[in-house]
Simulated assay, not measured.
Amino acid sequence: MSLFTGTTDYYREYRPGIPQEVADILNAAAPQHAPRRLLDIGTGTGLVVEALLGRFDDVIANDNDAQMIATAEAALRPKLSAGSSLTLVEIEAERFEPPGGWQANLVTICRAFHWLDQEVILRRLEDQVSPDGVVAVFGDNSFWAAGTGWKVAVRSVVKEFLGEERRAGSGMFKHHDRPYSEILQESAFSTVEELRVPVTRTWSRESILGYLYSTSFAAPQLFGDRLGEFESRIADVLEPFSTEDVYVEENEFLIRIGRRP
C-alpha cells in the first residue's frame, strides 16, 4: 500500500504549490538549448510539472502511486501547450528507465528525496541526465518541523491521537540526518549550489485539516472512528491564535542544485 493511500484528493487541493520564484530559479538553472527535457521524480499530483509547464518541450514524471498519477494526468493534460510532450509513469523511482537515448536537462525532486533510496537514485541519474544537465532537490518545511505557535499546537494534537513518533502510513517515519547538499556532493552532481526562497502563506482551519489529510503522518484513515474528535480538537487548539480563522505561516523553500564538476 502507498504511504499516501487516501490522501490524493487532499493533496491536490491543499498542498501548497511551487512559487513562481522557485520555478524561475529551476528554469534558469537548466540548459536553455532545445529540446528542453524535464524529469520530475516523485511527482505526486504534478505540482512541480504544473509550475514549469511551457518551459520544457518534453516532460516525464514518475510516481509509485496510481491515484497520484491519475490525478496528475487529469490536472496537467488540459494545460499542456501545443508541441509539448508529457509522459506520466507509475513506477518506483529507483526502477524508472527513460526511453532509449532520452536524457533530462533538469531533474526535479521536490518534497520526496527522504522517501527515496538516495544513493541508487543519484547513481541511476548519471546516465539519465545530459552532460550539462542539473539535479534539483528542494522543498519547504513540513508542519511536523514547525516552530510557529499555532503549528506547534496542531502538531501536538496529531501526537495526542497518533503517538509521539511521526507516522508514515502504517509504519513510522525514518529520519534522515545528513544534509541533502552533502549527499549530492558525494554523487556525480557534486558541484552544489543552495538557494533559499522565503514564502508567506495564509491558512484557514479547513485548509490546515486538508493539508494534514494530504500527508503520510496524518492521513484520514489513520484516525479510524476518531476523525471527528480529531477535527474538534484541532478547532479547539486553533481558536486562541485567531478570531478570524486566519493563520499566517512564514516558510521557505531550500533548493539544492547539483551539477557535474
Rank of each mutant, 00 (worst) to 15 (best):
T5G: 01
G6W: 04
G6C: 01
D9H: 08
Y10S: 02
Y11D: 01
R12K: 10
R15K: 09
P16S: 01
P16E: 02
G17C: 03
G17L: 07
P19R: 04
P19F: 05
Q20P: 00
V22P: 06
A23S: 10
A23N: 05
D24Q: 15
I25T: 08
A29Q: 10
P31E: 13
Q32G: 15
H33D: 11
H33W: 04
A34F: 14
A34P: 03
P35Y: 02
R37C: 15
D40I: 05
D40T: 08
G42F: 03
T45H: 04
R55V: 10
R55K: 15
F56D: 09
D58H: 13
V59E: 07
N64S: 13
M68C: 01
M68N: 02
A72H: 11
A72I: 12
A72E: 06
A72M: 07
A74L: 12
A75T: 11
L76H: 00
P78G: 03
S81P: 14
G83S: 07
S85N: 14
V89H: 00
E90M: 07
E92T: 10
A93V: 02
A93K: 01
F96V: 03
E97V: 14
P98G: 01
P99M: 14
P99R: 13
G100T: 15
G101Q: 11
W102Y: 12
L106V: 12
V107T: 10
I109Q: 07
A112W: 00
A112L: 10
A112E: 04
L116N: 02
Q118E: 13
Q118P: 02
E119V: 09
E119N: 11
R123V: 09
E126S: 10
D127G: 00
D127K: 10
Q128N: 04
P131D: 06
D132N: 14
G133M: 09
G133S: 10
V134C: 05
V135C: 09
V137T: 01
F138K: 03
G139N: 08
D140L: 11
F143N: 03
W144S: 06
A145W: 01
T148R: 04
T148L: 14
W150F: 13
W150S: 12
K151D: 02
R155D: 05
S156R: 11
S156I: 03
K159M: 13
K159T: 11
K159G: 06
G163T: 00
R167K: 14
A168V: 00
G171P: 12
G171C: 03
F173P: 05
K174S: 14
D177W: 13
R178P: 00
E182Q: 15
E186Q: 10
S190C: 13
E194D: 12
E194M: 14
L195W: 02
P198G: 02
T200P: 05
W203V: 05
E206M: 07
S207I: 12
G210F: 08
G210I: 14
Y211I: 05
Y211Q: 15
S216I: 00
F217D: 11
F217T: 00
A219L: 09
P220D: 13
Q221E: 15
Q221H: 15
L222C: 08
L222I: 07
F223G: 07
G224R: 12
L227C: 05
G228C: 02
G228K: 02
F230N: 00
R233S: 04
D236C: 03
V237I: 06
P240N: 06
F241H: 13
S242V: 01
E244S: 04
D245W: 10
N251F: 03
N251C: 04
E252W: 14
E252H: 14
G258S: 06
R260F: 09
P261N: 12
